[in-house]
Design a protein around this nucleic acid. Structure first.
Length: 486
RNA sequence: GCGCCUCUAGCUCAACGGCAGAGCAACGGACUCUUAAUCCGCAGGUUGGGGGUUCGAAUCCCCCGGGGCGCACCA
């Protein structure tokens, strides 16, 4: 479990009287990637006259008597260090460095006799010693437990871990710019909620001492963002952490990141266009193409994506034509025939949703917008303009998974009150996840919410898609794990 | 929460009822152009923890703990 006790006898911690002279700062003048970019084709054996200072971790070392080579890795990449007894100050000390030690080194950029771009070390300084080793220099660290618990070691030992983290960062940054370019304003709304609203999920609870008040960690951003639209912020978004007190799996972490966006005067058709453009843009910027590979299959993300109603999708994959007028007894029989467990309290809407989720969603490789959900399971979405009992809601399904959830927002306070009341009845009947009535939100709607299209995207799952990760733990720097010592 | 799989040296892995091993790292040494450098030498273990079966257990059984996958819940 423990990757590396202190190893090697000089790894014994020194007494305070004998601390090595670790400087407080180091003036770095070049990065590994910067040096490579500046000298793409330096001839073997050539010098440049350019003296640089680099810093990073010593990842490999090859000694050869009076000379030695090292691989210095910084955030940008790696560069070879070339040291020799004739020109390197404290050459013996350089040779005694351990793999993993942080050092700073100064010298001329040269190409060795074999053509490897290098820094010919004249001076070097120890910046931090690695008292623990980073594992096998060829195999790295593969034990998933160790990788997730000690991400700091994983990031050095495994290139893919670092690339994934950096790609996710660029994805978030590109998303912000994409939204801002379309006039969306980024805001921050409370994490501590009086009521766990905006989604159906079990919340985490916490307590504020001074107010002696039980609070919930948010399960969605939705209701506060729509309050801001009421307040006149016509295009608003937030990229924020939400928390759901549910099981862990390769696709679920208890805290995850949502992008939610609300656009006044727009409907769910406008939001579909926004989603397909955003995802295609990210793929193009990050992967260089909209044709990406995931789980051994190909995904074409270029717009326009297919649109299919939930009932059409169910008809295709479950092989059964149903709708909201189908008798409940018949829907139960259809579900039973396909091994979908049902609850006596469910109405036709919930039965159809379950049928869809259990028989169809996982089969959709996509990308596809599955549209028009039953009102019964969509308390915050607006009635469909032409199909009774349905709402204007869609989910984008990519690789068999929900990537986003969006709708034409319900903006009629009276209708919203009725759907909250229906939720309250469901809760009274035993549905733990039913949404509580939020009176302040109703009051906001009474001030007037214009026609608005809204969107929620799971950024972790988007990152999985764009990095090829098959588990959410690979795109979360520090995934939730059981404590190390039970 | 349930089921299946898994845990051996710091790391990556062998041994699968009969003497716990290798490579890398570490430690000592050789080597003036290496690329996972090479070579010589030396050390490294409560086989996740506990209990049981057996002449003998890393190996078989039971309990506990960590992890992975699936189910349930969900995004």
């Amino acid at each position: 479990m423990d990757a590396g006790r202190p190893v090697g006898k000089h790894r014994v911690p020194m007494s305070d009287d004998h601390r090595p002279g670790i400087p407080y700062r180091f003036e770095r003048t070049a990065s590994a990637a910067g040096i490579r970019a500046a000298h793409p084709e330096l001839a073997a054996g050539a010098g440049t006259g350019e003296v640089v200072s680099v810093a990073g971790r010593l990842m490999l070392r090859r000694e050869q008597g009076k000379i030695a080579f090292g691989e210095l890795r910084d955030q940008s990449g790696s560069i070879q260090l070339f040291a020799g007894a004739k020109w390197t100050a404290d050459f013996d000390g350089f040779v005694e460095l351990d793999l993993g030690d942080w050092i700073g080194a100064t010298g001329e950029v040269v190409a060795t006799r074999t053509g490897e771009l290098s820094v010919r070390v004249e001076h070097w300084v120890l910046l931090a010693e690695a008292r623990r080793s980073f594992g096998d220099k060829w195999h790295g660290i593969t034990d998933p437990d160790l990788r997730y618990r000690q991400r700091y070691a994983d990031l050095w030992a495994n290139e893919e871990s670092r690339e994934t983290l950096l790609l996710r960062s660029r994805m978030t940054s590109l998303t912000r710019r994409f939204m801002e370019d379309r006039g969306f304003v980024e805001v921050e709304t409370p994490v501590l909620h009086l009521l766990p609203g905006g989604a159906t999920a079990r919340p985490f609870t916490t307590h504020h001492n001074a107010l002696d008040l039980d609070l919930y960690l948010r399960i969605a951003l939705e209701l506060h963002l729509k309050r801001l639209v009421v307040g006149g912020i016509e295009r608003v978004f937030e990229i924020g952490r939400v928390f759901r007190n549910e099981g862990l799996s390769p696709r679920h972490n208890p805290e995850f990141t949502m992008l939610e966006a609300y656009q006044a005067y727009a409907d769910y058709h406008d939001i579909m266009e926004l989603v397909e453009q955003l995802v295609a843009h990210l793929a193009t910027e990050l992967a260089g193409t909209t044709t990406i590979h995931y789980a051994g299959r190909t995904l074409e993300l270029a717009p326009p994506w297919r649109r299919a109603t939930m009932l059409e999708a169910v008809a295709e994959h479950a092989g059964v034509e149903v709708d909201l007028t189908t008798p409940v007894a018949e829907l139960r029989a259809v579900a039973a025939a396909r091994g979908v467990p049902v609850d006596d309290r469910w109405g036709p809407g919930k039965l159809i949703l379950e049928l869809y989720e259990k028989t169809t969603e996982g089969e959709l490789w996509g990308p596809v917008f599955v549209t028009d959900y039953p009102k019964e399971v969509s308390p915050l979405a607006r009635d469909h303009r032409s199909t009774p009992g349905m709402v204007e809601r869609f989910e984008a399904i990519v690789a068999g998974r929900e990537l986003c959830n969006a709708f034409s927002e319900l903006n009629d306070p009276d209708e919203q009150r009725r759907t909250f009341e229906a939720q309250a009845r469901a809760k009274a009947a035993g549905d733990e996840e039913a949404m509580p009535t939020d009176d302040d939100y109703l009051r906001a709607l009474e001030y007037g919410l214009p026609p608005t299209g809204g969107l929620g995207i799971g950024m972790d799952r988007l990152a999985m898609l764009l990095t090829g990760a098959e588990t959410i733990r690979d795109v979360v720097a520090f995934p939730t794990l059981r404590p190390e010592q039970a």
